[in-house]
Design a protein around this nucleic acid. Structure first.
Length: 201
DNA sequence: AATTAGATTGAC
DNA sequence: TCAATCTAATTA
């Protein structure tokens, strides 16, 4: 069982929401199945850290067609295609015109595992099914069609599991942003300590 | 109009 | 270590 997040739950700094999202459910209802993944790894983007602008954020320089969802009120999705082949799913946070978002980097499959396995073209169920931002999108069938839609109601939403257990949060530097001279040092990656589905990073 | 590079992944 | 694959963003 789970309780969907409210509209206002998303309207906070990305660094806060990124940590609140750990242990929460990401749910995608399709005509075939209801996918549920427990969020185990996140990264915050946008805003600033110790007076330094996050130059790793897509919204750093300017507002463009692609990053437009990041400038909207928190609570919608921001999905984009990376390297021409993979999708990345973000939760937009904060308020309108303050571009902040949380990249979901890994989930632990809770429901719809057989479908996830098929989507990933794997035969053996192990952590490789969803231990990366592109992998979880493939597993849960999240594509550009799910870009810029509300995340507090079906078909794609965040929910608090009623049986949520205690977790220990580990913080570190974000992955694959070495081009960002300032941002690469920000400790804005968060994951659940000991969870096997966390990406290699 | 042409070029560049990317919030990744999987194969070698 | 490196190719796949393609589009948004940048440069001319």
């Amino acid at each position: 069982m789970y309780i969907p997040w409210k509209y206002t739950d998303f309207q906070d700094k990305a660094t806060n929401v990124a940590q609140k999202l750990l242990g929460m459910y990401l749910i995608h209802r399709t005509s075939e199945v209801e996918y549920i993944g427990k969020i185990v790894e996140t990264e915050a983007y946008g805003g600033s850290y110790r007076g330094k602008i996050d130059d790793a954020s897509h919204a750093w320089r300017k507002r463009t067609n692609r990053n437009e969802p990041m400038f909207q009120n928190g609570g919608i999705s921001y999905v984009y295609l990376i390297y021409g082949m993979y999708h990345c799913f973000n939760v937009v946070t904060s308020l309108k015109d303050d571009a902040q978002a949380v990249l979901i980097r890994a989930i632990e499959p809770i429901q719809g595992k057989e479908y996830m396995l098929a989507n990933r073209k794997l035969s053996i169920p192990d952590k490789r099914i969803s231990n990366g931002p592109g992998k979880l999108c493939t597993a849960m069938n999240i594509t550009i069609k799910e870009n810029s839609i509300p995340l507090w109601k079906a078909p794609l939403f965040i929910a608090t599991p009623t049986n949520k257990e205690m977790i220990r949060i580990v913080k570190g530097k974000r992955v694959n942003i070495s081009y960002a001279e300032k941002g690469k040092y920000f400790p804005w990656r968060f994951f659940i300590q000991g969870n096997p589905y966390v990406s290699k990073g």
